[in-house]
Amino acid sequence: MSVASQDTAVKTGSIAKVFIYLILVLFALFYLLPLYVMLTNSLKPLSEITGGDMMSLPKAWTIEAWLSAWSTAQVGVSPTGLRPYFINSILMVVPAVAISTVLGALNGYILTKWRFRGDTLLFGLMLFACFIPFQIVLIPMARILGILGIAGSTQGLVLVHVVYGIGFSTLYFRNYYASFPTELVRAAMIDGAGFFRIFWRIMLPVSGPIAVVTIIWQFTNIWNDFLFGASFAGLSAMPMTVALNNLVNSSTGVREYNVHFAGAIMAALPTLLVYIVAGRFFVRGLMAGSVKG
C-alpha cells in the first residue's frame, strides 16, 4: 500500500516538502497541546497550578493526584474516587459491544444471504436507528426500563446501548457481507451445513476487519456516552463519564485541578487503548468495505 502511494504521489520539490512538514508538525503540536496540559498538570501538586502557569513542566513530580482521582476523591456525595465507576463502565461496555456486534453480524448475514420478502424495507427501517436523536427516546426508554424492572441498573444501560447500536452494526455487516459471494453459501448448503454452521464456519472467519471496525465504533460511542448514563443509571450503575462530571462539580472548598485532569485522562484511556491496539485494522476494514462494496 505504501509502495503504491509513493509511486502515485505527486513529485514535490524539497523546499515545498520542508514547508509541508513544518505545517504538519505545527498542526500536530496544536492538537497535542490539550493532552500536554492535562498530563503535566495531573502530575503537579495543586499549589503549582494555582500559583504558577499552566504550561510549565512540574517542578515537583507527583502521582498524588492520580491516586486521589482513582480511589479517594469526592465523587458526588461519597469519597470513593473513580474506581467503582470505571468498573461500572467496563461492566456496561463489554456486554453491550459484544451483543450489538454479534447481533449486527447475524442481521447482516440474514439480510444478504437469506433474503426474504421486504428485507430491504426492514433494513431501511433499521437504518433509522442511526439517525434518531437520543433525546427523543429518553422518556419512552425510561418507561420501558421501568416495565422491565431494570431501571437504574447496568443491565438497563446495556439494553439501551444494544438497541441503539444494532442499527450501526447491522449497517456495517450488511454492507460487508453484500460483497461476500453467495455461491459460497450455496456450496455450504449443498455440503450440508445449516444456518448457524454456515455463519460460524464460513462467514465469521472472514469477518475480522469489519468486526474490528464495529467493535471500535461501538466501544467508543458507548464508553463516551453521557446522556444515557446520566438519564438511566442509578448511583450504583453510574458510568465513568457521569462520575467524571460529578468529580469535577463536587465542591468541597478548593478545586483540585490536578485531580480533575488525572480523572479525565483515566476516562479517555480505554478508548485510546482500543484505537492504538486495533486502529490499523480499523483503517484496513474501512478501506476493504469501501473498495469492494
Partner: peptide
C-alpha cells in the same frame, strides 16, 4: 428436498472454495 439431501455435488463458476 434440501440440497444436502439430494446426493448431488456442484462445481460453481467461481469455484466457491471456502477462503478460510
Amino acid at each position: 428436498v434440501h440440497p444436502s439431501k439430494r446426493n448431488i455435488a456442484m462445481v460453481f463458476q467461481s469455484y466457491a472454495l471456502y477462503p478460510n
